[in-house]
Every structure is written in C-alpha cells, then in structure tokens.
C-alpha cells in the first residue's frame, strides 16, 4: 500500500484533511506514528529499569544509545552533556528512527518532507541563541555577531541563516532523493536493485541523522564556547597582571 504517487515529491502533498490553512497530511500523520512508537517504546523499556548489574537487552541498547550521544556531545562541546542531551538526543533519535522505518512497506519518512527538515532546522536555529544567551547572557551573545568587527554583522547573520537552510535542505535532499530513486527503480527494475538501494538508503539515513545532530551540536557549542574562551583570556590577563604587580 503506497500513499504517495511517484510524481509526488514530498509526503506533504498527500493530504487527508484540510480546513482553511489547517491540513492533515502524510508528513504529520507519519510523524505522529513515529512519535507514538518512540514514546511508547521508551515508556515500555524504561518502566522497569534495573539498577543491578543484570539488565535487560533493551535497557542495555538504550543505555548504549544515551551514553553514545552523551560522549559525542561532550567531545564536541567540551562541556557537560546534561544540558544539551534531551535536545540533541531527540533530534538524532527522531531523524534516525524516521529514516530507519523506511524499510516498512508504505511508510514515507517525514524527513523526506522539506517542511519537517525546515522545522527541525528552525528548532536548531532558535535553540542556538537560547543556549548561547542562557550560557553567557544576551549582551555577550549578541556581541559575537560583531566579532571581530562590526562589519561582520551581516555576514554573521547570513551565515546563521544559510547554515540553517543548509541543514534543512541537506537532510531533505538526501532522504527524498533516496526514496525517489528506490521508487523509480521499483518501477523500472523491481528486483534486487531496489533492495540494495533501500539498504544504502538506511545507511544514508543514519549518516544524515548523525550529521544533523552533530552539526546542531557544533552550532550550539560555537555559541556557548565564545564566552568560555573570553573568560579563559580574561583569567590569563588577570594572572599576568597579578604577577607583574
């Protein structure tokens, strides 16, 4: 059962319900499905967590996942991962799970919709200043846009926007193109090749999830580490002046 026609590029175009501008399309429906699977799965796995040495396989997998994400965040940000863990973790798990479920017949990944990738990119775009301001205050955060000179302000703003756009388009382009290639190959050569490409699509999907999450963390880290660098410089200056005195 396929919801999408080969001519339709994104799942947004499959609309189940519409009232004025409110539309219930395939992207939202499958997003809810993925959300439901993730939340129910998490609840089922974490409702009876063991604190002994013997743990279940599912708990083990979840702990490996959480620890892996935590380590990645710590490596990139050189900060404690606790603060960024839910945001970055949710991004990675959501995108990875959306892409992994493409093996289910009839399923269309929400990440194959530019609306979804744009929404995720917007979340990153908003979270970067939020984390930055929370870390070093509004003034200090805004100052980084005029670094090293005030003439860099438009370029910095453009950089912020372009990288957000790049995030959205990169993920959308990769996933959408993968699903379209598989669909076209299924129509032309329905044996072997689509399966191989499907497997390749899974790998691409995982890599894209990783790239999206890592880039989001890099952006957040760049917004929060400027202050740290400045603080380090200030401390160094204070130490030097006290030695001179």
């Amino acid at each position: 059962m396929n919801f999408m026609d080969i001519k339709q590029i994104t799942p947004d175009q499959v609309i189940f319900f519409q009232f004025h501008f409110i539309t219930l399309n395939l992207t939202i429906v499958f997003t809810w499905a993925v959300m439901a699977v993730l939340v129910i799965g998490s609840w089922l796995i974490t409702r009876q967590l063991s604190t002994d040495r013997q743990i279940s396989a599912w708990q083990n997998i979840m702990e490996m996942l959480v620890t892996g994400i935590q380590d990645q965040i710590s490596e990139i940000s050189r900060q404690k991962a606790t603060r960024y863990m839910p945001f970055i973790g949710t991004l990675f798990i959501f995108i990875a799970f959306c892409n992994l479920l493409t093996v289910v017949p009839g399923y269309e990944s929400p990440t194959a919709s530019l609306s979804t990738t744009a929404a995720l990119a917007i979340c990153v775009f908003i979270s970067v200043p939020l984390f930055g301001i929370a870390q070093k205050g509004l003034g200090n955060y805004l100052k980084q846009y005029i670094q090293p000179t005030v003439f860099m302000l438009p370029f910095n703003i453009m950089g912020e926007l372009s990288r957000t756009l790049a995030l959205a388009v990169r993920l959308f382009g990769n996933i959408m193109s993968g699903s379209k290639i598989v669909a076209i190959l299924l129509a032309i050569i329905p044996f072997v090749f689509p399966v191989i490409l499907q497997l390749l699509g899974l790998l691409t999907g995982m890599i894209q999830a990783y790239i999206f999450a890592v880039l989001a963390m890099v952006y957040i880290a760049s917004a929060t580490q400027v202050q740290d660098q400045k603080q380090t410089d200030r401390k160094k200056n204070n130490t030097r002046s006290s030695r001179n005195n």
């Binding site: 947004d12 959300m35 929400p110 919709s113 609306s115 979804t116 744009a118 929404a119």
Partner: peptide, 14 residues
Amino acid sequence: LIDWFTVGAQVVNF
C-alpha cells in the same frame, strides 16, 4: 515544497 502549517506543526511535534 514547503507547507508552513506543516512546518509549525512539526516544530510543535518535535
């Protein structure tokens, strides 16, 4: 290709 309502809904969903 982009539906702004869907974008908003996906932000909320996320």
